[in-house]
């Protein structure tokens, strides 16, 4: 194959090719690694890039690193888990967003806007209050809350003929308002010092919960995998459920699998970091703008870009007004709300 043919295949906008997918994901993975090193290095206590690489290398290989104990603790025990958590949560929210958008045939769908994050938050907060001794109960309850909410929003948003954008989003807003008031009621019933933590978590916060990193990462990997194996079916569902049916997609099975997977992703993210808004909306949209609408690209690329985005947003949250921390949810909302308004105007 000549160089010309190869470049044509990679940059052809007619359709997604395996080469274009592989190269895009490889570039994004490299950016993710570089951004992680940067993110670990900056903070109230600056550590050198080389030290970051040495310590992480040592963690992986098991050798001792030639770095002071203090720096080793900052890098390996404080910042690395937080960066990894940001990647996991960002990936989960972005893939959940891309899945809801394809299923609901609506580029404006997002777990936050549809009220699904609130449902997950209600589940998580109930578990915090009623089953505090079991840390794993939180992601599980958040998953349950997300599943129930998407079912309700879908039923409300479903018109007699077709589900319009406005109707669906309106349904989400209403459910969101209802769930939020219940969540606030529960928060006010929590005593004293714990209340501040719960409120901070509710706005969106990545500072705690590193003990849940491993189980949540497992949930998220399962969720992304389950969406990805349905990516080709989702390409057809995105155009129309009836069309997809006549072209051979088992639409019902795909719908159930992807709804469950997206709810698992939302639940896992909300359980550890609260209701971080707009990631699920902006990231898949940006990916489609650059890379096209094929979900075989949109799903994995959204995972990587979502991870990069949330990690960088969290770096701002940690450093902007140091030594105090901003809530990451505030930052994503400041970026996301104007983008949402822009998209809403453009679709109509």
């Amino acid at each position: 194959m000549s160089v010309k043919e190869l470049t044509h295949q990679i940059f052809s906008r007619e359709r997604l090719t395996a080469q274009r997918l592989a190269i895009t994901l490889a570039v994004l993975a490299m950016v993710l690694i570089a951004a992680s090193v940067f993110s670990i290095a900056v903070g109230s206590e600056h550590v050198g890039f080389t030290n970051v690489i040495r310590v992480i290398g040592a963690e992986i290989t098991g050798h001792a690193a030639d770095v002071s104990a203090e720096q080793r603790i900052i890098i390996a025990d404080i910042r690395l888990p937080r960066v990894l958590m940001a990647i996991v949560v960002g990936a989960a929210l972005a893939v959940a967003g891309s899945a809801y958008q394809a299923l609901l045939r609506n580029p404006l769908a997002d777990p936050g806007i549809l009220g699904i994050s609130s449902g997950a938050a209600l589940g998580a907060i109930s578990a915090t209050i009623f089953a505090e001794s079991l840390p794993i109960s939180r992601p599980v309850a958040a998953f349950g809350g997300a599943v129930i909410t998407i079912a309700v929003v879908y039923a409300v948003g479903q018109g007699r003929r077709e589900s319009g954008t406005v109707r669906l989003i309106l349904g989400g807003v209403i459910i969101n308002a209802l769930l939020s008031s219940i969540v606030i009621f529960l928060v006010t019933s929590v005593a004293g010092a714990r209340q501040r933590n719960v409120i901070s978590w509710l706005i969106g916060d990545l500072s705690g919960e590193s003990r849940l990193l491993l189980p949540v990462a497992v949930f998220v990997l399962i969720g992304i995998g389950a969406v990805y194996v349905n990516a080709r079916s989702l390409n057809l569902m995105m155009i129309g459920e009836q069309d997809a049916l006549t072209l051979g997609v088992e639409a019902r099975r795909v719908k159930i699998a992807v709804y469950l997977a997206a709810s698992l992703l939302t639940g896992a993210a909300v359980a550890v970091s609260g209701a971080i808004g707009f990631v699920g909306l902006i990231i898949p949209h940006a990916v489609r703008l650059v890379g096209g609408s094929d979900n075989r690209l949109v799903v994995p690329a959204s995972a990587l870009v979502g991870g990069i985005f949330l990690m960088l947003a969290d770096t701002i949250a940690r450093t902007a007004v140091a030594p105090r921390e901003l809530n990451i949810g505030v930052i994503t909302s400041l970026i996301g709300a104007p983008v949402f308004v822009y998209l809403l105007r453009r679709t109509n």
Partner: peptide
């Protein structure tokens, strides 16, 4: 169609039932 899927990608959807799921 609300998503910016290309005409080629749309036509290739006709081949869905002939290929694998992934």
């Amino acid at each position: 169609v609300l998503f910016p899927i290309t005409a080629m990608e749309l036509v290739l959807q006709g081949r869905f039932a002939q290929g694998g799921l992934i």
